[in-house]
Amino acid sequence: MTRVRNDYVLYGAIGVAAIAAPFVFPSFQIQLSFLWLMILFAMTWDIMGGQMGYNSFGNILYFGVGMYVSAVVQVGLFYDVAAYTSAAGANIQSFTPSQFLWGLALGMPVAGLAAAVLAAVLGAGMLGLRGHYFAIGTLGLGILAAELAGAWDYIGAGSGMVPPLFPDGLGSRPRFFYFVLFGIVVAAFFTLRWLYSGRFGLAINAIRDDEDKAEAMGLHTRRYKTVAWGVSAFFLGLAGGPVGAMIGFIDPRDTAFAGTTWGVFMVLMAILGGKGTIWGPVIGATIFHVTQELFWTFLLGWQRVAMGALIVLIVVFFPQGIMGWLRERMPERFGHRVEDSPAGPGD
Protein backbone atom coordinates (compact mmCIF):
# COMPACT_ATOMS: atom_id res chain seq x y z
CA MET A 1 0.00 0.00 0.00
CA THR A 2 3.01 2.33 0.00
CA ARG A 3 2.20 3.33 -3.53
CA VAL A 4 -1.21 4.64 -2.53
CA ARG A 5 0.29 6.64 0.32
CA ASN A 6 2.91 8.04 -2.06
CA ASP A 7 0.08 9.13 -4.31
CA TYR A 8 -1.57 11.10 -1.53
CA VAL A 9 1.72 12.71 -0.57
CA LEU A 10 2.16 13.70 -4.21
CA TYR A 11 -1.35 15.11 -4.50
CA GLY A 12 -0.90 17.01 -1.25
CA ALA A 13 2.40 18.50 -2.39
CA ILE A 14 1.01 19.54 -5.75
CA GLY A 15 -2.10 20.96 -4.10
CA VAL A 16 -0.12 23.05 -1.61
CA ALA A 17 2.21 24.28 -4.33
CA ALA A 18 -0.70 25.15 -6.59
CA ILE A 19 -2.53 27.10 -3.89
CA ALA A 20 0.62 28.92 -2.81
CA ALA A 21 1.84 29.70 -6.33
CA PRO A 22 -0.27 32.80 -7.09
CA PHE A 23 0.73 34.35 -3.77
CA VAL A 24 4.41 33.52 -4.16
CA PHE A 25 4.64 34.54 -7.82
CA PRO A 26 1.92 37.17 -8.18
CA SER A 27 3.38 38.50 -11.42
CA PHE A 28 3.08 35.11 -13.11
CA GLN A 29 -0.56 34.50 -12.25
CA ILE A 30 -1.80 34.78 -15.83
CA GLN A 31 0.85 32.39 -17.12
CA LEU A 32 0.06 29.97 -14.31
CA SER A 33 -3.64 30.16 -15.14
CA PHE A 34 -2.81 29.25 -18.71
CA LEU A 35 -0.74 26.37 -17.41
CA TRP A 36 -3.89 24.89 -15.87
CA LEU A 37 -5.73 25.46 -19.12
CA MET A 38 -3.02 23.64 -21.06
CA ILE A 39 -3.14 20.72 -18.64
CA LEU A 40 -6.88 20.56 -19.10
CA PHE A 41 -6.50 20.63 -22.89
CA ALA A 42 -4.03 17.76 -22.84
CA MET A 43 -6.05 15.67 -20.37
CA THR A 44 -9.31 16.03 -22.26
CA TRP A 45 -7.66 15.27 -25.59
CA ASP A 46 -6.09 12.17 -24.12
CA ILE A 47 -9.45 10.64 -23.23
CA MET A 48 -10.13 10.24 -26.92
CA GLY A 49 -6.69 10.26 -28.51
CA GLY A 50 -4.76 8.33 -25.89
CA GLN A 51 -7.11 6.10 -23.96
CA MET A 52 -9.58 5.32 -26.74
CA GLY A 53 -7.45 5.58 -29.88
CA TYR A 54 -9.64 8.16 -31.61
CA ASN A 55 -7.55 11.05 -32.91
CA SER A 56 -9.72 14.09 -32.59
CA PHE A 57 -8.32 17.18 -34.28
CA GLY A 58 -11.44 19.18 -33.52
CA ASN A 59 -11.80 19.08 -29.74
CA ILE A 60 -11.24 22.83 -29.66
CA LEU A 61 -14.82 22.97 -30.91
CA TYR A 62 -16.18 22.27 -27.44
CA PHE A 63 -13.93 24.82 -25.82
CA GLY A 64 -15.16 27.51 -28.20
CA VAL A 65 -18.77 26.51 -27.80
CA GLY A 66 -18.36 26.70 -24.05
CA MET A 67 -16.78 30.12 -24.29
CA TYR A 68 -19.62 31.52 -26.37
CA VAL A 69 -22.42 29.81 -24.44
CA SER A 70 -21.06 31.03 -21.16
CA ALA A 71 -20.66 34.59 -22.44
CA VAL A 72 -24.17 34.58 -23.93
CA VAL A 73 -25.65 33.31 -20.66
CA GLN A 74 -23.71 35.88 -18.63
CA VAL A 75 -24.89 38.71 -20.85
CA GLY A 76 -28.34 37.34 -21.53
CA LEU A 77 -29.28 37.25 -17.86
CA PHE A 78 -29.18 41.05 -17.71
CA TYR A 79 -29.17 42.48 -21.25
CA ASP A 80 -30.34 41.77 -24.77
CA VAL A 81 -27.54 39.75 -26.36
CA ALA A 82 -28.00 40.92 -29.96
CA ALA A 83 -27.98 44.58 -28.93
CA TYR A 84 -25.00 43.94 -26.69
CA THR A 85 -22.88 42.31 -29.39
CA SER A 86 -23.84 44.77 -32.11
CA ALA A 87 -22.58 47.58 -29.89
CA ALA A 88 -19.30 45.74 -29.43
CA GLY A 89 -16.64 47.98 -28.07
CA ALA A 90 -18.72 51.14 -28.23
CA ASN A 91 -20.47 51.11 -24.88
CA ILE A 92 -19.91 47.89 -23.06
CA GLN A 93 -22.44 47.45 -20.33
CA SER A 94 -20.93 47.06 -16.92
CA PHE A 95 -21.76 44.25 -14.54
CA THR A 96 -21.93 44.47 -10.80
CA PRO A 97 -19.88 41.92 -8.87
CA SER A 98 -22.95 39.88 -7.99
CA GLN A 99 -24.24 39.99 -11.57
CA PHE A 100 -20.84 38.84 -12.75
CA LEU A 101 -20.59 36.02 -10.26
CA TRP A 102 -24.14 34.80 -10.85
CA GLY A 103 -23.64 34.96 -14.58
CA LEU A 104 -20.44 32.96 -14.41
CA ALA A 105 -21.84 30.48 -11.90
CA LEU A 106 -24.75 29.78 -14.21
CA GLY A 107 -22.89 30.22 -17.49
CA MET A 108 -20.14 27.70 -16.77
CA PRO A 109 -22.29 24.66 -16.04
CA VAL A 110 -24.68 25.55 -18.86
CA ALA A 111 -21.69 25.82 -21.19
CA GLY A 112 -20.29 22.51 -20.00
CA LEU A 113 -23.61 20.76 -20.47
CA ALA A 114 -24.18 22.38 -23.86
CA ALA A 115 -20.78 21.14 -25.02
CA ALA A 116 -21.47 17.64 -23.70
CA VAL A 117 -24.88 17.52 -25.37
CA LEU A 118 -23.32 18.73 -28.60
CA ALA A 119 -20.71 15.97 -28.32
CA ALA A 120 -23.46 13.40 -27.89
CA VAL A 121 -25.37 14.72 -30.90
CA LEU A 122 -22.31 14.95 -33.13
CA GLY A 123 -21.05 11.68 -31.72
CA ALA A 124 -24.14 9.87 -32.98
CA GLY A 125 -22.74 10.34 -36.46
CA MET A 126 -19.05 10.96 -35.98
CA LEU A 127 -18.24 8.20 -33.53
CA GLY A 128 -19.25 5.57 -36.04
CA LEU A 129 -16.25 6.66 -38.10
CA ARG A 130 -12.88 5.07 -37.73
CA GLY A 131 -9.26 6.03 -38.25
CA HIS A 132 -8.67 8.55 -41.00
CA TYR A 133 -12.31 9.41 -41.34
CA PHE A 134 -12.71 10.39 -37.72
CA ALA A 135 -9.48 12.41 -37.77
CA ILE A 136 -10.36 14.41 -40.87
CA GLY A 137 -14.03 14.67 -39.90
CA THR A 138 -13.18 16.25 -36.54
CA LEU A 139 -10.64 18.51 -38.20
CA GLY A 140 -13.48 19.67 -40.43
CA LEU A 141 -15.83 20.18 -37.47
CA GLY A 142 -13.36 22.40 -35.65
CA ILE A 143 -12.89 24.69 -38.64
CA LEU A 144 -16.60 24.59 -39.47
CA ALA A 145 -17.36 25.93 -36.00
CA ALA A 146 -14.86 28.77 -36.42
CA GLU A 147 -16.35 29.67 -39.80
CA LEU A 148 -19.92 29.63 -38.50
CA ALA A 149 -19.07 31.65 -35.40
CA GLY A 150 -17.25 34.12 -37.61
CA ALA A 151 -20.38 34.66 -39.69
CA TRP A 152 -23.11 34.67 -37.04
CA ASP A 153 -24.13 38.22 -36.13
CA TYR A 154 -25.90 37.28 -32.91
CA ILE A 155 -22.55 36.51 -31.30
CA GLY A 156 -20.72 39.33 -33.00
CA ALA A 157 -19.63 37.44 -36.14
CA GLY A 158 -16.07 38.12 -37.27
CA SER A 159 -15.60 41.11 -35.03
CA GLY A 160 -15.88 38.91 -31.97
CA MET A 161 -17.61 39.37 -28.65
CA VAL A 162 -16.65 41.02 -25.41
CA PRO A 163 -17.70 38.88 -22.45
CA PRO A 164 -18.74 40.65 -19.23
CA LEU A 165 -15.62 42.23 -17.86
CA PHE A 166 -14.35 41.43 -14.42
CA PRO A 167 -15.84 44.02 -12.05
CA ASP A 168 -14.05 45.89 -9.30
CA GLY A 169 -14.54 44.68 -5.78
CA LEU A 170 -13.84 40.99 -6.32
CA GLY A 171 -10.18 41.11 -5.47
CA SER A 172 -7.39 40.25 -7.88
CA ARG A 173 -8.66 39.41 -11.34
CA PRO A 174 -5.82 37.03 -12.31
CA ARG A 175 -6.05 35.26 -8.95
CA PHE A 176 -9.76 34.75 -9.33
CA PHE A 177 -9.41 33.02 -12.70
CA TYR A 178 -6.36 31.13 -11.55
CA PHE A 179 -8.40 29.41 -8.88
CA VAL A 180 -11.39 28.82 -11.14
CA LEU A 181 -9.19 27.06 -13.68
CA PHE A 182 -7.28 25.20 -11.00
CA GLY A 183 -10.61 23.96 -9.64
CA ILE A 184 -11.71 22.72 -13.05
CA VAL A 185 -8.44 20.86 -13.56
CA VAL A 186 -8.67 19.21 -10.15
CA ALA A 187 -12.25 18.16 -10.86
CA ALA A 188 -11.28 16.84 -14.29
CA PHE A 189 -8.24 14.98 -12.98
CA PHE A 190 -10.12 13.13 -10.29
CA THR A 191 -13.09 12.44 -12.54
CA LEU A 192 -10.78 10.88 -15.10
CA ARG A 193 -8.84 8.96 -12.48
CA TRP A 194 -12.10 7.54 -11.23
CA LEU A 195 -13.38 6.74 -14.72
CA TYR A 196 -10.13 5.11 -15.84
CA SER A 197 -9.96 2.91 -12.77
CA GLY A 198 -13.23 1.16 -13.47
CA ARG A 199 -15.04 -0.59 -16.24
CA PHE A 200 -15.16 2.59 -18.34
CA GLY A 201 -11.37 2.70 -18.54
CA LEU A 202 -11.15 -0.95 -19.51
CA ALA A 203 -13.82 -0.49 -22.18
CA ILE A 204 -12.22 2.49 -23.89
CA ASN A 205 -8.83 0.77 -23.77
CA ALA A 206 -10.41 -2.26 -25.37
CA ILE A 207 -11.82 -0.02 -28.10
CA ARG A 208 -8.33 1.39 -28.62
CA ASP A 209 -6.73 -2.03 -28.88
CA ASP A 210 -9.30 -3.71 -31.13
CA GLU A 211 -12.69 -2.18 -31.70
CA ASP A 212 -13.87 -5.02 -33.94
CA LYS A 213 -13.14 -7.49 -31.20
CA ALA A 214 -14.95 -5.35 -28.64
CA GLU A 215 -18.00 -5.31 -30.88
CA ALA A 216 -17.75 -9.03 -31.49
CA MET A 217 -17.82 -9.47 -27.71
CA GLY A 218 -21.04 -7.50 -27.54
CA LEU A 219 -19.61 -4.49 -25.74
CA HIS A 220 -21.80 -1.38 -25.95
CA THR A 221 -19.02 0.46 -27.74
CA ARG A 222 -21.22 3.31 -28.87
CA ARG A 223 -22.22 4.20 -25.32
CA TYR A 224 -18.65 4.26 -24.11
CA LYS A 225 -17.44 6.33 -27.01
CA THR A 226 -20.22 8.84 -26.57
CA VAL A 227 -19.58 9.18 -22.84
CA ALA A 228 -15.85 9.58 -23.48
CA TRP A 229 -16.40 12.40 -25.93
CA GLY A 230 -19.06 13.91 -23.71
CA VAL A 231 -16.78 14.01 -20.66
CA SER A 232 -14.03 15.54 -22.76
CA ALA A 233 -16.45 18.14 -24.13
CA PHE A 234 -17.94 18.90 -20.71
CA PHE A 235 -14.66 19.94 -19.14
CA LEU A 236 -13.60 21.89 -22.22
CA GLY A 237 -16.93 23.69 -22.25
CA LEU A 238 -16.67 24.39 -18.54
CA ALA A 239 -13.26 26.00 -19.01
CA GLY A 240 -14.40 28.06 -22.00
CA GLY A 241 -16.35 30.62 -19.94
CA PRO A 242 -13.68 31.65 -17.44
CA VAL A 243 -10.98 31.73 -20.11
CA GLY A 244 -13.12 34.02 -22.25
CA ALA A 245 -13.70 36.29 -19.26
CA MET A 246 -10.03 36.17 -18.31
CA ILE A 247 -8.85 37.21 -21.77
CA GLY A 248 -11.66 39.74 -21.99
CA PHE A 249 -12.35 39.28 -25.68
CA ILE A 250 -13.66 36.38 -27.76
CA ASP A 251 -12.35 36.21 -31.29
CA PRO A 252 -13.96 33.34 -33.20
CA ARG A 253 -10.73 32.18 -34.82
CA ASP A 254 -8.03 33.25 -32.39
CA THR A 255 -9.51 32.55 -28.97
CA ALA A 256 -12.67 30.46 -29.15
CA PHE A 257 -11.91 28.03 -31.97
CA ALA A 258 -8.16 28.56 -32.07
CA GLY A 259 -7.46 25.45 -34.09
CA THR A 260 -3.99 26.43 -35.23
CA THR A 261 -2.73 27.18 -31.73
CA TRP A 262 -4.61 25.54 -28.86
CA GLY A 263 -6.15 22.91 -31.07
CA VAL A 264 -2.65 21.81 -32.05
CA PHE A 265 -1.17 22.25 -28.56
CA MET A 266 -3.67 19.72 -27.20
CA VAL A 267 -2.36 16.99 -29.45
CA LEU A 268 1.27 17.92 -29.02
CA MET A 269 1.17 18.12 -25.22
CA ALA A 270 -0.65 14.82 -24.81
CA ILE A 271 1.72 12.90 -27.04
CA LEU A 272 4.76 14.63 -25.57
CA GLY A 273 3.84 13.54 -22.05
CA GLY A 274 2.70 10.08 -23.09
CA LYS A 275 -0.65 9.15 -24.56
CA GLY A 276 -2.96 6.91 -22.63
CA THR A 277 -1.64 7.63 -19.15
CA ILE A 278 -3.17 9.85 -16.52
CA TRP A 279 0.01 11.75 -15.69
CA GLY A 280 1.39 11.92 -19.22
CA PRO A 281 -0.78 14.80 -20.42
CA VAL A 282 -0.18 16.70 -17.16
CA ILE A 283 3.58 16.38 -17.52
CA GLY A 284 3.52 17.05 -21.24
CA ALA A 285 1.43 20.19 -20.80
CA THR A 286 3.61 21.47 -17.98
CA ILE A 287 6.85 20.98 -19.87
CA PHE A 288 5.41 22.42 -23.05
CA HIS A 289 3.95 25.45 -21.36
CA VAL A 290 7.01 26.24 -19.26
CA THR A 291 9.39 25.93 -22.22
CA GLN A 292 7.02 27.99 -24.30
CA GLU A 293 6.94 30.78 -21.71
CA LEU A 294 10.67 30.67 -20.98
CA PHE A 295 12.34 30.15 -24.30
CA TRP A 296 9.97 30.72 -27.11
CA THR A 297 10.36 34.45 -27.20
CA PHE A 298 13.95 33.81 -28.28
CA LEU A 299 12.68 32.02 -31.33
CA LEU A 300 11.36 35.29 -32.75
CA GLY A 301 8.21 33.99 -34.31
CA TRP A 302 9.65 30.67 -35.37
CA GLN A 303 8.04 28.95 -32.38
CA ARG A 304 4.99 27.85 -34.34
CA VAL A 305 7.24 26.29 -36.95
CA ALA A 306 9.11 24.55 -34.17
CA MET A 307 5.76 23.29 -32.88
CA GLY A 308 5.04 21.46 -36.13
CA ALA A 309 8.55 20.06 -36.19
CA LEU A 310 8.15 18.96 -32.58
CA ILE A 311 4.96 17.02 -33.37
CA VAL A 312 6.72 15.21 -36.18
CA LEU A 313 9.76 14.49 -34.03
CA ILE A 314 7.74 13.14 -31.13
CA VAL A 315 5.43 11.04 -33.28
CA VAL A 316 8.24 9.54 -35.32
CA PHE A 317 11.02 9.11 -32.77
CA PHE A 318 9.36 9.29 -29.39
CA PRO A 319 5.82 7.98 -29.80
CA GLN A 320 5.69 6.57 -26.28
CA GLY A 321 6.13 10.04 -24.77
CA ILE A 322 7.80 10.92 -21.50
CA MET A 323 5.68 8.57 -19.40
CA GLY A 324 6.26 5.71 -21.81
CA TRP A 325 9.97 6.41 -21.74
CA LEU A 326 10.02 6.44 -17.95
CA ARG A 327 8.19 3.14 -17.92
CA GLU A 328 10.78 1.60 -20.20
CA ARG A 329 13.72 3.01 -18.30
CA MET A 330 12.45 2.63 -14.77
CA PRO A 331 9.88 -0.14 -14.83
CA GLU A 332 10.25 -0.71 -11.09
CA ARG A 333 8.88 2.74 -10.33
CA PHE A 334 6.64 3.62 -13.29
CA GLY A 335 6.17 0.33 -15.07
CA HIS A 336 3.34 -2.06 -15.43
CA ARG A 337 3.54 -4.22 -12.35
CA VAL A 338 3.71 -7.96 -12.50
CA GLU A 339 3.15 -9.19 -8.99
CA ASP A 340 4.80 -12.36 -7.84
CA SER A 341 2.56 -14.97 -9.29
CA PRO A 342 2.01 -17.79 -6.87
CA ALA A 343 0.93 -21.06 -8.33
CA GLY A 344 -2.69 -21.04 -9.34
CA PRO A 345 -5.29 -22.37 -6.95
CA GLY A 346 -5.69 -25.63 -8.79
CA ASP A 347 -2.06 -26.41 -9.64
Binding site: N55, H132, W302, V305, G308, L310, I311, V312, V315
Partner: peptide
Protein backbone atom coordinates in the same frame (compact mmCIF):
# COMPACT_ATOMS: atom_id res chain seq x y z
CA UNK B 1 -2.41 4.59 -38.88
CA UNK B 2 -2.18 6.57 -35.69
CA UNK B 3 1.40 7.56 -36.35
CA UNK B 4 0.96 8.44 -40.00
CA UNK B 5 -2.07 10.65 -39.26
CA UNK B 6 -0.25 12.53 -36.52
CA UNK B 7 2.97 12.79 -38.53
CA UNK B 8 1.33 14.29 -41.60
CA UNK B 9 -0.70 16.52 -39.30
CA UNK B 10 2.59 17.73 -37.81
CA UNK B 11 4.04 18.32 -41.27
CA UNK B 12 0.95 20.29 -42.16
CA UNK B 13 1.38 22.57 -39.13
CA UNK B 14 5.09 22.90 -39.81
CA UNK B 15 4.59 23.92 -43.43
CA UNK B 16 1.79 26.40 -42.83
CA UNK B 17 3.76 28.13 -40.10
CA UNK B 18 6.87 28.11 -42.24
CA UNK B 19 4.98 29.81 -45.05
CA UNK B 20 3.50 32.27 -42.58
CA UNK B 21 6.95 33.07 -41.31
Amino acid sequence: LFISILATFGISILLQQLINQ
